[in-house]
């Protein structure tokens, strides 16, 4: 089966800045695909090009076998796109916002009521249908935004950082809705700077500085790491001891995660050996525990690997 989104050698620059360089990616029909990466990784540029808001400098992008540089209008009618800064009309009610987008996307008049009803089922916004969008809470606004992008039953749903700036409860709820949509057969491409959200995707691509560092199932990516990751907790780690910890022989990297540290060591180094060395430095109570690598660890390992290769 052909992938529903197929990106080949895609590059795009703005002036002298290369936003995306030589990107290759296939997204299969029906999957929930995550573009993971920090700000400036090229996620938004890639997404905007897929939804035909920008033209590629070079390379080819096909959405459902339609060329993004030629079949602009056709692609627009089969994709649902929620921009990073999705803004609804704050002076229009929920109903008016939905109707507006339904008309804009040529949803058959007879079907509008039915579709709204279905969208209300998962968004639970029905009781507020006549409330102005400007008066909704952040999470509700976001659900309304998603409903507006779904009103025309898109084949592909493309979301640019939908959970940025949304409270954790609403974020969770939002992912549940995405899972529901996926189970109904909608292909979803979602970008996020939150590495923990990567685990909720079927497959992910880790982006950094305009190119894909790795892609695949999240579990497969974390399995790639052939070093051991240890989580170190204790007081004053980051303020006082981090400089000495970095000096430990054999240590590959030190990353702070909140108030704890993630230490990377080669598999050969034994936990006992590490424990002793840290005891020498800290001279106080601490906890050292080997942990499963997270996507963030993968990201850091990939970025460091890349810069070392570069040097």
């Amino acid at each position: 089966m052909l992938p529903i989104i197929s990106i080949k050698n895609f590059s795009k620059s703005f002036g002298k800045t290369k936003a995306v360089e030589n990107l290759n990616l296939d997204i299969e029909k029906g999957e929930l695909f995550g573009l993971i990466g920090p700000d400036g990784a090229g996620k938004t540029t890639t997404i905007r090009t897929i939804v035909t808001l920008m033209a590629p400098d070079s390379g080819e992008i096909y959405v459902n076998n339609l060329d993004v540089s030629k079949d602009i209008r056709k692609i627009r009618s089969i994709t649902g796109y929620m921009p990073q800064r999705f803004s609804l009309y704050p002076d229009l009610s929920i109903n008016q916002n939905l109707n507006f987008f339904a008309n804009l996307f040529d949803v058959p008049k007879k079907e509008i009521a039915g579709r709204k009803k279905r969208l209300f089922q998962f968004s639970n916004l029905e009781p507020f249908a006549n409330r102005l969008a400007g008066q909704l809470s952040g999470g509700m606004k976001q659900k309304l935004a998603l409903s507006c992008t779904l009103i025309h039953n898109p084949v592909v749903l493309i979301l640019d950082e939908p959970t940025t700036g949304v409270d954790p409860v609403s974020r969770n709820e939002f992912w549940i809705i995405l899972k529901e949509l996926k189970s109904e057969g909608v292909t979803i491409l979602v970008s996020t700077p939150y590495m923990d959200e990567a685990l909720k995707c079927d497959r992910i691509a880790i982006m950094h500085e305009g190119s894909v560092l790795a892609h695949g199932k999240p579990e497969a990516l974390t399995a790639l790491i052939d070093n051991n990751i240890y989580k170190l907790t204790g007081s004053g780690l980051i303020n006082k001891y981090i400089d000495s910890i970095v000096q430990i022989t054999g240590i590959l990297s030190v990353q702070s995660f909140g108030d704890s540290l993630h230490l990377t060591f080669p598999k050969l180094t034994s936990e006992q050996e590490i424990n002793d060395k840290i005891k020498d430095i800290l001279k106080q109570n601490f906890m050292l525990k080997q942990i499963e690598p997270t996507i963030e660890d993968v990201f850091i390992a990939l970025v460091e690997g890349k810069s070392q290769n570069g040097n």
Partner: peptide, 9 residues
């Protein structure tokens, strides 16, 4: 909001 209108047909 214009970005939203633009991606419509």
């Amino acid at each position: 909001t214009l970005e939203q209108i633009l991606v419509s047909p």
